[in-house]
Structure formats: structure tokens, C-alpha cells
Design a protein around this nucleic acid. Structure first.
Lengths: 210, 210
DNA sequence: GTCTATAAGTAGATAGAC
DNA sequence: GTCTATCTACTTATAGAC
């Protein structure tokens, strides 16, 4: 236990397996899946291409592994936040929205959305898992929370399907714009993550009558 | 004139140049840019690969040409809609939103967003033009319209930057979800374009006090 | 303007030494 | 577990006949 904690303390101490996944994720995000070669992943991981095939049997397996670890943390934190019944629904809204932004805008899995779009026809299982284990779970947790808040009279009643789009549309748009235009310095201020989160909260509060 | 109109009447009558662009766009949308080979584009256009290079000097040139024609129509129609001063601001909102959905969700250029994300680091000029000639223009037209409507007292005052995200976030999210999950039949109803447009309008009306 | 043939390079993946 | 060397297939792009 102490050893493995120590091993993960510094990035240099990451296992080869994890270094590969970190490097691959960064490359997939920057250049997409097809334009990222196994050679490039190997070099970025500090090993030779043949060594890469000792850890993963194919490029497809690397892509799958990049997603494997990503879903759970965000979903768990969302469950924790919405489950805190000692707080009012209004008080739980901001941390919930913050966690949604973490998952979609800041986490590497959320940022992978364009890579999923690129690969969905070749590897539909990835898109399917992304939907089932991440998008769907987030939707269900958030929608249950908002429905309950409306039933309790803390939120003004509003078409729940519309709330769904209001809740997820804005961070998904943000993460898309950042992956398309993140390289342009003159556009950075428009896609400032903290600022957009505040604007998003203002929209949700208005819709929920807060 | 009569001849060229006739030529464009049936898909079989398209010029080779246009058939290439239609085929290339469809393939880029389905498989992404890097995974689409010039051979595949040639076959889908009904010609040989070498003939393709008679019409476009490189694969990069094909990608650029796929975007070239796409921006203007949506922007022009948005200008026409918002310019109709004989109608109330409230009455112009629905057609304006309809046109935004046309441009982002239904047009091939809007659907290309993930392809832009895939290629932005190799070909930043494409992402730049997509922003400057499409996104930026749509934002400017829509924001001017909403600001005026608020000044005239037809729309309730609301942070204009937030309106920006409320207006574009939902269709961009829709087009992303459709490109990631469009292949899954059980998810189709969630991403029904007409339904989402109605929900989007309901959100905007609520924010604008209509 | 379209074709067949081919060049030159890179991709994913494997063999086998250490 | 990592390496060098290599296989096979496919990539973008070009040459030159018709």
C-alpha cells in the first residue's frame, strides 16, 4: 500500500502502463485517434513501439483503456452531492453543476467527446459505454434531483426534458468549443471555464425560479 | 443558366467536382478526416484515385473545399429574419432559432464540428474560418437581436453572455450527441431534432420572460 | 479528364535476441 | 520487459498512356 501510494506520487513514478495511457490520451485529444500512431504513443511514453505491444495487444486496446478508468469518479461525486438530504435542493445545485462541469469540461473522458464521434462507426462499443456509464448516469442522477426539488416546491416546475438540455448542453458546447478553438488565444476569454460555469448557474437558477 | 440549373437538378447530374465534395463530406462525417482515404473518396465518387488529383491537388484541399460553400446561406437567412422590423421581436425568435438549428444540427458544415476538433492542430485555418465566418457571425447577429429586443422592452433583461450560451449550447450539444450516438436506435428519440428545438424554444422563452 | 501503374513513405503488428 | 529488425498492407501522391 505505502509503496503503491509512493509510486503514484510523482509522474515519473507512474507505471509504464499508466504512462502509456497518459501519453495516449494527450495525443488522442490533440490529434484524434486515427492521426495518432503507435510510434508516437511509444515515443511519448519513453519506450519503443514493440514494447508498447507488450502492454496492449492493439491500438484499439489502448483507446479502450483510455476510457476504462474515467467514468466512475464523477458519477460517484454526483451521487454524494445529490444524496446530502440535510442541505436544501437550492444549496446542492451549485456543487452539482460544478461536478457536471468537472466531468464534461475538465476530465479527459469528457474532453474525448470528439474522439468518440470520430470512432463511433468503427468502435461503437466505446460510444455505447460512454453513453451508458457516463452520460446516462449523469442524466439520471441530475434529473431525479431536479424532479424531487420540483416536487418539494423548492424549484419552480419546468419541463424536465428541457432542463436536461439546459443542464448538459452548455458544458458540452463548452468542451467542444475548447477542443475546436482552444488553440486560438484571442478566443480564450470566451471559453473561460469558470466564467461559463457562473453563466450556466445563472441560467439554471432563472429556469428553476431561484 | 438553364443548363446549369438542369445539371444540378438530379444528383446524377452533379459535376464531378461536386460529386467528390458530397462523397468526401459524407465520409468525413462518418469516419473522420484521417480515417478517410483518398481511395475511398474516389470510389464513392465513381472515379479513380488519380482522377481525383486532377480536381483537387491534395487531401487537405478536399477538406478545405468541403467547408468553403457552407457558411453563407445560414448567415444570410439569419440576417433576413432578424432584419424584418415589421415583426415583433418575440415573433422573430422562433424562425431565428429554427435557422440556428438548421445551421448547426442539419447542415453538413455544422455537423462537421467533430472533424474540426480532429483537425484543428494540423489545419488551424479551417477552425479559424469556421469560427470567424460561421460561429462569430451567428453570435453577432443573434446577440444584436436579443440586445435590441431587451432595450425595446419586449424581452426581459438577462445577462447577454448567458443568453449566448443558452442559444448555441443546446444545438451544439445536439449535433455532438447525434454524431456520437446517432448509430444507436434506442437513443434516437432523445435526440429527435424537432423535439429538442421545441424544448430549446421553451427555455429561451422562459429566460426572456415570454 | 480519366485511366493503369507505380513510387516513396508510414501504418499496425510480429519475431526473436537479450 | 525492453530492444532492433522486419513483415505486410495501406497511405498520399505522381508519371504517363489514351
Amino acid at each position: 500500500m505505502a509503496t503503491s501510494a509512493k509510486l503514484q506520487k510523482e509522474p515519473d513514478m507512474l507505471s509504464t502502463h499508466d504512462r502509456i495511457l497518459e501519453a495516449a490520451t494527450a495525443l488522442f485529444l490533440q490529434n484524434g485517434y486515427a492521426a495518432t500512431s503507435m510510434n508516437a504513443i511509444a515515443k511519448a511514453s519513453g519506450i519503443q513501439k514493440a514494447s508498447l505491444y507488450h502492454h496492449f495487444e492493439s491500438k484499439e486496446a489502448v483507446l479502450f483503456a483510455c476510457f476504462e478508468r474515467g467514468y466512475q469518479a464523477t458519477v460517484e461525486r454526483m451521487r454524494t452531492i445529490t444524496g446530502q438530504n440535510d442541505q436544501s435542493y437550492a444549496d446542492r445545485l451549485e456543487p452539482l453543476v460544478g461536478e457536471i462541469h468537472n466531468g464534461i469540461v475538465h476530465s479527459s473522458v469528457g474532453q474525448m467527446a470528439p474522439v468518440i464521434a470520430e470512432t463511433t462507426s468503427r468502435y461503437p462499443e466505446i460510444a455505447r459505454r460512454f453513453n451508458d456509464e457516463f452520460i446516462d448516469e449523469m442524466h439520471n442522477i441530475a434529473m431525479a434531483f431536479l424532479s424531487e426539488g420540483m416536487e418539494q416546491g423548492e424549484f419552480a416546475p419546468f419541463e424536465i426534458e428541457a432542463m436536461d438540455h439546459a443542464l448538459f448542453g452548455i458544458p458540452v458546447n463548452l468542451t467542444m468549443c475548447r477542443s475546436m478553438f482552444g488553440g486560438f488565444e484571442d478566443l480564450q476569454h470566451r471559453y473561460d471555464t469558470d466564467r461559463v460555469k457562473e453563466l450556466h448557474l445563472a441560467i439554471l437558477r432563472k429556469l428553476l425560479g431561484l
